[in-house]
Write a protein that binds this DNA or RNA. Structure first.
Lengths: 218, 218
DNA sequence: CCGCATCCGGGGCGATACTG
DNA sequence: CAGTATCGCCCCGGATGCGG
């Protein structure tokens, strides 16, 4: 463990979560909930297996991650965030906000996983008419497993997996989905470029994108 | 430049500011404003000079830092944050919030600089009676150059350097100052352990510490 | 299969020396 | 003062092995 050796809150935080892959491990656990080792591996394309083991050990020592035996149906251990680890959510959210302008284009070599959309969806969408019955939108990005978002008390909640009775379904390449979620594209613009939209057109309009990149209210 | 190669806002942000020392360079520029190369070096104890040069180049390429010729009195270039770099402030603030519990103790080997206190002061202090005339508190931590904090419109602003007419002066070891600023210690408790306080006792009471570690309102 | 440990090559990092 | 140059070292990445 290399440390900055500074009596400064920023430096001490980076001592814990500043190494390579550490915050992405936290991202996976925040988005997917408790995970097996191989779940994490699949959510972190390109990570060396020894590094994943190292990071999990270090994060466990730091009180960010807890390892526990799973319930009988599952034979293997699960890794989950502690309360202290959950408190990293605002850090991740600010990283997402700052990174929004970097999402305009996707590279040929870039990997993509659909659950990475969930934090942006929760951050940048809101329910404009929370008094009406809740709605659910399923998102099918590229050939990835589906995810869905649902309104809950004025906010928007994102979850992995398919929706039971979606009011709308978005299908298309990642950058179009991202364009809509981050507020850079309207649904109409995205449809013109190849996004497919099934269901009531009013559904997604209801989840108006907030200020996309800069000018966040706070 | 090593990259995660992910189409994910978190990963792309970390591609820019995730390397060692990068966010601490940003911290320095946020706290001290435009800096010369040697200013940065002195604020980043232990950084190798080639690494500082590398980071500045990379952050410049990424649009976070701008290099500019200083006004005539100063012969050398200055580095300053761009608007885009300034927008990293919320990221730094969340790192400070999360790191607050890590500041309970100071290690023998730890370096310390007084301006590192400025972000915590601004985050965790507030002006409880903004209608009254503004106040200023000077902080003299250990043998460090003084910094000061002042009330402005209900908030608290921290600045390097001495105050012109401080209403109060705090003098003592870093961990006692930190204890007060982060709300872990009352002034009375800190004074009992060796903190020295000059001026009107009501001054610092007015800047009530907010919830210290967890339970932030948002 | 799952969850690593081990080995090895390459590069980011750290310390020092040196220069315009 | 503001870097560049050089050199180890260790972290990281990739591959393989291996016990449960």
């Amino acid at each position: 463990m290399r440390t900055y050796g500074e009596y400064c809150a920023v430096a001490r935080t980076l001592d814990v979560i500043g190494q390579r892959w550490a915050l992405l491990v936290v991202r996976e656990l925040l988005l997917r909930g408790p995970c097996r080792y191989t779940d994490l591996q699949s959510g972190l394309p390109g990570i060396a297996t020894n590094l994943l083991a190292d990071r999990l050990r270090e994060l466990e020592r730091a009180g960010v991650v807890r390892r526990e035996a799973a319930r009988p149906p599952i034979a293997t251990d699960l890794f989950r965030l502690t309360d202290r680890g959950e408190q990293l959510r605002p850090v991740i959210e600010e990283l997402v906000r700052w990174g929004a302008p970097l999402m305009a284009e996707i590279g040929d070599q870039d990997t993509f996983q659909s659950h990475w959309l969930l934090t942006p969806a929760e951050l940048f969408l809101t329910d404009t008419t929370p008094d009406q019955p809740p709605v659910t939108v399923e998102i099918r990005a590229a050939d990835q497993p589906p995810v869905h978002i649902e309104t809950v008390g004025g906010a928007v909640r994102g979850r992995p997996g398919s929706a039971e009775h979606p009011d709308a379904i978005l299908t298309g390449p990642p950058q179009l989905i991202v364009g809509v979620l981050f507020g850079r594209l309207t649904v109409a613009q995205a449809r013109a470029r190849g996004l497919r939209y099934h269901g009531d057109p009013a559904t997604l309009r209801r989840l108006r994108a907030q200020a996309p990149t800069v000018d966040r209210p706070r």
